[in-house]
Amino acid sequence: MKEYEIIIETINPCGGERHSQQEIIEAEIESPEAYVAQNGRFPVIDTTRNADGDVVIVTGDGNGYMVRYTFTE
């Protein structure tokens, strides 16, 4: 298991990214994918890495509601 800092951004269709709600937590998890599968409320749309090498997983409902998880080791 690895320890990650996880930034969770909840984005709604009215406010967009500018008005997203952000939460930062630390967790010891098996993998980012397993964490989102267990704790996410929407299906995964995309999994990428940002310029810093952090894992970024975006989930959504297809109607504008999205949750973006950024995992930093």
Results as ranks from 00 to 15, higher is better:
residue 37 A to D: 08
residue 62 G to K: 00
residue 26 E to K: 12
residue 69 Y to W: 08
residue 56 V to C: 05
residue 60 G to M: 04
residue 35 Y to A: 01
residue 8 I to G: 04
residue 35 Y to G: 06
residue 16 G to K: 05
residue 54 D to W: 11
residue 26 E to S: 09
residue 53 G to C: 07
residue 62 G to M: 00
residue 51 A to E: 10
residue 47 T to N: 12
residue 46 D to P: 13
residue 35 Y to S: 05
residue 30 E to T: 13
residue 7 I to Y: 13
residue 11 I to A: 12
residue 59 T to N: 07
residue 39 N to D: 13
residue 7 I to C: 09
residue 56 V to R: 06
residue 28 E to D: 14
residue 7 I to K: 03
residue 57 I to D: 15
residue 58 V to Y: 05
residue 42 F to C: 13
residue 54 D to F: 03
residue 48 T to H: 07
residue 32 P to K: 14
residue 66 M to H: 15
residue 13 P to Y: 04
residue 39 N to A: 00
residue 12 N to H: 04
residue 61 D to N: 09
residue 73 E to S: 07
residue 69 Y to D: 03
residue 9 E to T: 11
residue 45 I to T: 11
residue 61 D to C: 15
residue 7 I to H: 06
residue 36 V to A: 05
residue 12 N to T: 10
residue 38 Q to I: 02
residue 30 E to W: 05
residue 8 I to C: 03
residue 52 D to G: 15
residue 20 S to R: 08
residue 22 Q to T: 06
residue 73 E to D: 10
residue 4 Y to K: 03
residue 43 P to D: 11
residue 49 R to V: 15
residue 9 E to N: 15
residue 11 I to H: 01
residue 50 N to Q: 08
residue 58 V to K: 11
residue 58 V to L: 09
residue 49 R to N: 09
residue 29 I to M: 01
residue 26 E to C: 11
residue 19 H to P: 01
residue 73 E to K: 08
residue 13 P to I: 08
residue 15 G to H: 12
residue 44 V to L: 11
residue 8 I to K: 06
residue 5 E to H: 09
residue 16 G to R: 00
